[in-house]
Simulated scan of single mutants.
Amino acid sequence: MTKLDLMVVENFTSKSQIQSKSVLDEFRDRVQSNRKTSGYNLSDQLLLQFLSSREYNQTEALTILSNYLTVVNERPDLFSWREELKRVANDGIYVHYPINNVNGSKVVIIKPGSWNPNVISFEQWFPQTLFFCEISLMDRSVQQNGIIGIIDMRNLSWSQIYHIGVSGSRLASHITDYCFPWTIQSAHLIYENRLTNMAFNLFKPFLSAKLRQRINFHGSNLETLYKFVPKSNLPPSLGGTNQEFSGEFYNNILDQHKQSVLDHWQSLRKRKVSN
C-alpha cells in the first residue's frame, strides 16, 4: 500500500461511508472482469474513491476508473515530475487554493493569461495540475464535495489560445472531466474579454453535457461569483478577504507530496496480463 493509499484510508472509517463490503466486492469483481481494468493491483481505498465519486454507481465508476488507468499508462510524460513544474505556481497559472469552500469543495484557480507560451509549453506545465489533483483527492471532503473552478480571463491573448489548440483542449477536458474521481460542481469564468468565446469554443466540444450546464459567466461582476464561493474563501486577487498564498507556498505542498503521488502512479503501471 502506497503512502497515498494510507492517507486516503484514514478518511474511510465508518460503515456508513463504505456502505457495505458486498458493494466493494461486487465492484472489484467487475473491475477484474473488465478487459481495460483487469490485472491491476488496485487497493480497496482507490476503488472506494471512484465509487464514492459517482455515488456508488458502479457503471459510471468503472468508466472513470478505466479512463484514469488508461491515461496514466499511456501518457507517462504527463504523469511524471520535473522541476520546471514549479514555474506554474510561481507564475500564478494554476493552483488549488488551500482554503476549501464552505461546503468542503476545493477551489481551483486558473489564470491562463499569466502563462507565457514562449517560456513553457502547455504540455510542459499541464502535469503540475495532475499533481495538485491527486493531492487534493487525499482530502475526503474533496472526494465527497468535488471541486469548483474559477477561470480568470484577464490578460488572455491569442498566443495562449493558439498554443493550447484543439489537442490541448481535448487533453485537459478529457482528464479533468472524465478521468479523476471527483465531481466538478461548477466552473466560473470571470473578467471575460473578446477572446473568451473563442477559447471556450475550443473546450466546449470535449466537455460533458453535465459540465457545460454548470459553467457560469460573471464578467467583472464578482458579486454573482460570491454566491457560489464567498469572499471569505477567496484570495484578495479575486476580491476575497482571505489570504493570498505565494508560489513558494504551493511549491512546498508539491515538494511535500510529490513522492507519494509518484509512488501511486508507479503502482498503477504494474499490470499482470493473462495469457
Rank of each mutant, 00 (worst) to 15 (best):
W115Q: 08
Y226G: 01
P127S: 08
W125H: 06
I190W: 08
N221G: 04
N116G: 08
L156Y: 00
F206D: 00
N155P: 05
V119Q: 14
D91T: 14
A209H: 11
I147D: 05
N155T: 12
N101G: 15
E123N: 11
V107G: 12
F131V: 09
P98S: 11
L211Q: 05
G104Q: 07
H163M: 07
T176K: 03
L222V: 07
A89E: 03
I120Y: 10
G165I: 03
P117S: 00
S157V: 01
I109L: 14
G149N: 12
L189V: 07
A209T: 14
F132R: 10
L189S: 09
N90H: 14
L207C: 02
L85T: 10
I147A: 06
Q185R: 14
L156E: 00
L211M: 06
A172Y: 05
L137P: 02
L202Q: 11
P98A: 09
P181F: 11
Q213D: 08
A187P: 08
I109R: 07
Y191M: 06
E192Y: 06
N216Q: 14
D91C: 13
K204G: 04
S105A: 02
I99L: 15
N103Y: 14
V119A: 13
P112V: 04
R82K: 04
E123W: 10
S121H: 12
Q213F: 08
I150W: 10
F200R: 03
N100P: 04
D152P: 00
D177H: 02
K86M: 13
K111I: 03
Q213I: 01
S121L: 10
L211N: 05
G165C: 02
Y94V: 07
A199L: 09
G219M: 04
S136E: 04
I120A: 03
N221R: 05
D177V: 12
L171D: 00
P205W: 03
W115N: 05
V107A: 07
H163V: 08
Y162P: 07
L85R: 01
D139H: 13
C179M: 02
I161R: 09
I135M: 05
S169N: 08
S141M: 13
W115E: 00
N193K: 08
M198Q: 15
F122Q: 01
G168N: 11
F206H: 01
G165M: 07
F203R: 07
L85F: 02
R194H: 15
K111E: 13
N155I: 12
G113S: 01
H163T: 15
